[in-house]
Design a binder for these strands. Structure first.
Lengths: 217, 217
DNA sequence: CTCTTTTGAGAACATAAGTTTTAAAGGTGT
DNA sequence: ACACCTTTAAAACTTATGTTCTCAAAAGAG
């Protein structure tokens, strides 16, 4: 992963234009397309900047190939593919959560994955997912078989839907998070259900719920 | 929508190659790429076949543009883009459903859309979506703000989750559908809730629920 | 300030790639 | 057989597009 140092305005503009162009036209732009759109006086300047963007891992150039530009994401992978989120385990009341980490899993191929709309990773970064087993999350309006998409996190803002691990009960649960001094109120999504209160020490936040996906065959 | 007559082998092969090429390379092939891959003796033969595929709506050619081929799906829309499903209205108990049709909407641009994973349209074809307003669908485990993705249909199999319109009550609801002779049992997704029964005449099926999407900001 | 590195310009060049032209081989129906 | 359409071929042509060369202005480094 490259440093987050901001690029020169012109180079950033080129990058943005390429992305927009691909989205709108379904194929990468030519050097001259970029030249015109970014108001650059010469193709050599475009080429020069593309070289640097290539070297720094923002894109990939296929030499001698018309429109041979391929944008890469932060992880150096080709973009424009449908994002798949790993289902790293199943969650059910009373079942210990599988160990997951925000870091890259080395042996990542062994997990099932689920297709998600690209705006999710775009907005929240690296995500993972859990499949809910049983009806224990029904107070969170989550059914057996639903997939919960989660952004790893160890803290949360008030009101966010989180994956909370209750140490004493040895139970994972999906609730809205409300810190109240030394206590934590965990509020079900279903407003007709009562919240649970417990001491802040007993609650461990594992992640924030970003989306719930329910599919019918 | 074009007829489902099968294409000549060579033309089908060209089409398949283009799709594979785009998937693997992130940009469309050149005429000469196609020529080599499909073992065609001349570029003019490729051009000839591409013309026909263009004319018959399988793809789009941008004249004088290198790699200017764009594959189209069955509905004539450019492929390879993230599918967006139109949110054609809001649904709430007691609110009449907006008029929607499975046919192409002429003035389609005025609706909001939501990104969905491509496997949904791939499996179910043309879809639309409704945003749920209020807590009235809570027995279906659906919350305020959830988006329900629907495949238009006027009939359903036993056990499928459907959008049902209750004529007498003038109410739309999301339930599992169970025909029972002259009666229909509509079962909430939440198994702790009681089903409702009504006469088959009073129930109109508007579509099948394909997915429910809940997003958190 | 001088030296180096980065960035910008303009033009020319080479090849990648769409298009056209001409011809002919296979069909189909009359 | 004919006329007519589809399909295949080979080669040439034109444009689109990546690449390179030379020169110069900014921008940092010492």
């Amino acid at each position: 992963m490259t440093l987050n140092k901001k690029l020169p305005i012109r180079r950033q503009r080129i990058l943005d234009f390429i992305q927009t162009f691909i989205e709108e036209n379904g194929l990468p732009p030519t050097v001259r397309d970029i030249q015109k759109a970014c108001e650059i006086s010469s193709t050599s300047v475009v080429d020069y900047n593309l070289r640097i963007l290539d070297r720094d891992g923002f894109l990939n150039r296929r030499p001698d190939v018309a429109r041979g530009i391929e944008l890469l994401d932060d992880a150096g992978q080709p973009m424009g593919t449908v994002p798949r989120v790993q289902i790293v385990g199943r969650i059910a009341a009373g079942s210990p959560l599988p160990a997951f980490s925000a870091e890259g899993n080395a042996a990542s191929q062994e997990f099932e994955t689920i297709e998600v709309a690209p705006d999710l990773p775009k907005r929240h970064g690296r995500l993972f997912a859990l499949e809910v087993q049983g009806q224990s999350m029904i107070d969170a309006l989550i059914d057996d078989g639903d997939v919960v998409v989660i952004k790893p996190s160890h803290q949360a803002e008030q009101g966010e839907m989180v994956v909370a691990w209750l140490k004493e009960e040895e139970e994972a649960t999906l609730k809205k998070f409300y810190p109240e001094g030394n206590q934590v109120r965990l509020q079900p999504a279903n407003s007709s259900m009562d919240p649970i209160y417990c001491s802040a020490d007993n609650v461990e936040i594992r992640g924030k719920v970003v989306s719930v996906i329910r599919k019918f065959v």
